[in-house]
Amino acid sequence: MDTAIIIEKSVLIVAVFALTMLMAMYATLAERKVAAWLQDRIGPNRAGKGGILQPLADGLKLFSKEEFLPDTPNKFLFVAGPAISMSVALMTSAVIPWGDKLEIAGRTVIMQATDIDVALLYVFGVLSVGVYGIMIGAWASNNKFSLMSAMRASSQMISYEVAMGLSIIALLMMTGTLSLREIAAQQSGMNWNVFYQPVGFLIFLVCSFAETNRTPFDLAECEAELIGGYHTEYSSMRMGFYLFAEYASMFISSTILAVLYFGAYNYPGMQWAVENWGVNVANIIGFLALFAKLCFFIFFYMWVRWTIPRFRYDQLMRLGWQMLIPLAIANIFVTAICILWSDGNLF
């Protein structure tokens, strides 16, 4: 019995890991293709048919570059920076429910690596630790521009975490649970949380852009002011790790957005599919539905990147502290009043 669980979980973890890696790889190609499309170009089309092998070529190029180590007294921290970024970007996927359940050889397999009580807080904890990779790597680079970038990254991360946490509280008051599995199950049919929490969703979306360091909030790598930002001194695969971690965390945060607000693996008619086509087929379609939703969000990230210019630093701070946080607090109050009203306890 125990061996079966260990095998089942290992297979699941390896599959999720492979999926994240594959998605991060192809997100780089997708980004260039989307950019080309938005700017009326063709984009990379030399490696393979329509540029399909471009990520492999990029990876090979990064691997074969010279590994440059700057003159720094903190060689260990310099190497640790990208490693922390990468591992933290991959850790979140442990609590994501990819589907409801499968039935394989008479056993019910839950499509989630681990179903913990505090899954949502876990996501939050991993997010808040994520900035260490950038901070430590940038500081160990022994470079003024990198240090400035670390400052920006950390202050931005802390500011937007507050608004993100507050937007989540309104969602928690509605769902009454911190388990991502239960939040996903509650949204069956078309009961998607985005219809009940539109403002919370908007705040969460804006904060996810800030937390993943994507344009218009990528001040940490503002090349006009800071050369390359925190990865100025990095080369070869260490630099590749930083870039890769950005795409991996983009994939994960798209998944979190889809799970929290866009119905996770649920699709209209899932109940009917379970009754007529069996649990397995219905859940595989469910996984594909989740995949389609998260692909949309990845596309949305790219769409915004190539449409909206970067914010100025003071604009970024004003948006975070003076607009998003009051809006999130107001959202909590409105949600509380609505919950009391619908329960009939208001007066």
Partner: peptide, 26 residues
């Protein structure tokens, strides 16, 4: 104690120490 663990990480490692590092670097 999962809740205590995760709150400990969020508050101490995720917020307080990042502010500490930020100040020291500054």
């Amino acid at each position: 104690s999962q809740f205590l663990f995760i709150v400990h990480i969020i508050v101490y490692a995720g917020a307080i120490m990042i502010l500490f590092l930020f100040t020291i670097m500054l």
